[in-house]
Simulated assay, not measured.
Amino acid sequence: MIDTNIVELTKETKNLIIKGHTQLFPVVRIPLGELQYNKLNGRIATWISEYLSNNDKFPEEIEKANMIIEGFMEESNPDLLKKTKTNIELFDQQESAVVLKNGIIVDGNRRFTALRQLSREGKGQKFSYIKAVLLDSDDYTEKEIKTFELNLQHAKEERVGYNPIDRLVDIYRDLITENAPFSPAEYAREVASTEKVVQQEMEVSQLMIDYLEYIGHPLMFHIVRKQKLDGPLREAHRILKSKKIEAENIEDARDVIFASIASFDGDVTRKIRDMKKVVQDSKMLNEVVTELDDTLDDIDAHFHEPDTSTVPGNNIVDVPINQKNKVIEITSKFAERKKLTSAKRAPIESLKRCLDRVNDVDSDAVVRMNSDDIDEFSEYIIRIQEQLDSLKGLTNVD
């Protein structure tokens, strides 16, 4: 707990929305040594995941844990931290943080990081303190504290910078886990969004969870961050949500897409997008699965062998080169074949659209047209008929 005897009251106050209404709180100065980062902070969720995958647990000593998390804060967004640090050095801390009386920072981790570094660099005694609102955690439930955090993170335009994967991890924790504190409707209200958007984010987050299970590393979110899979996962979500994929083909489509995500290099999002029409075509999807049958089995076996599914040291997914090349070869072949087929059918699709437009013409409106409009209308009919005659001649159809 923070030693309140060394906390200094300032003349500043800060309005906070908590428990559903705005309250005015006094701002105090707290020595940095009294504070600790929140290990559940969404901005560093994937970094915490990576650390725990390589270590049994976090150090119990607060300063050791703080130094580790400070490194995460810097790595997660070095440019923004540098900007915050420069601003505080020039103009002092302008915006107050929010801290619980147990010393955990609820809001202001980047400011805390900047002040810690300025203090260590000997920039002045004033940087050894943080200005903050001090909340008693006994006065609020965990859900109320989390709601407060969501309000803070979404209430102001400048509160951005979440890695998109860290955002999906937050969605998972807040909405999908067994004891998730929020319903989609509640969450949408707190982040000023819609329930439909939140439901969609939940589906993408669940797809992330499914992918990690597929590669044999459940809940190791840092792997998804290092692969930069926000774009590919969202593309995969759009494909798998398509009504053109029959229910009995969803699992096959998902396995092919997951194997592709793990195997592809370069612009993975575009390459997954190129597979859309392949997996939506039942016959072609079946051909892909048939040609990749043994390869998909081998990949699944590899992913579920202990300590073999990632490259040591960087946690990037490691698909054996033979299986990787096979996935790339087969999926690329069928994607190109689908593009060629689509190109061959392009004239037919154009005529279908033209017919739809012609069917939209209101015959009653034609009857009521004046003479000038009739002349123009007739001219278009003649030009269209000439073009159709020309196309008909190319097909040798009588």
Rank of each mutant, 00 (worst) to 15 (best):
K11V: 11
G20C: 10
V28D: 01
P31M: 07
G33A: 13
E34L: 03
Y37H: 02
K57P: 05
F58P: 06
P59A: 14
K64Y: 09
E70P: 02
E95C: 01
G103H: 03
A114M: 04
L115Q: 02
L118I: 10
L118R: 02
R120T: 06
R120Y: 09
Q125L: 08
K131F: 07
A132R: 02
V133Y: 00
D139V: 08
E142Y: 08
K143W: 13
K146F: 09
L150V: 04
Q153C: 07
E157M: 14
V160Y: 09
I165H: 02
F182G: 01
Y187D: 01
L207N: 04
I209M: 14
D210M: 12
G216I: 09
F221N: 00
I223C: 05
L229E: 08
L229Y: 12
D230K: 15
G231M: 15
L233C: 01
I239W: 07
K244A: 11
I257W: 05
A259F: 13
A259C: 08
V268E: 04
I272L: 14
R273Y: 15
D274V: 04
M275I: 15
V279S: 10
D281H: 11
N286H: 15
V289W: 06
F303D: 02
F303N: 03
H304R: 13
T308I: 14
N315S: 12
P320T: 03
K324N: 04
N325G: 10
K338P: 07
L355T: 06
S363Q: 13
V367I: 13
I374R: 14
Y380G: 03
L388A: 04
L391W: 00
K392V: 01
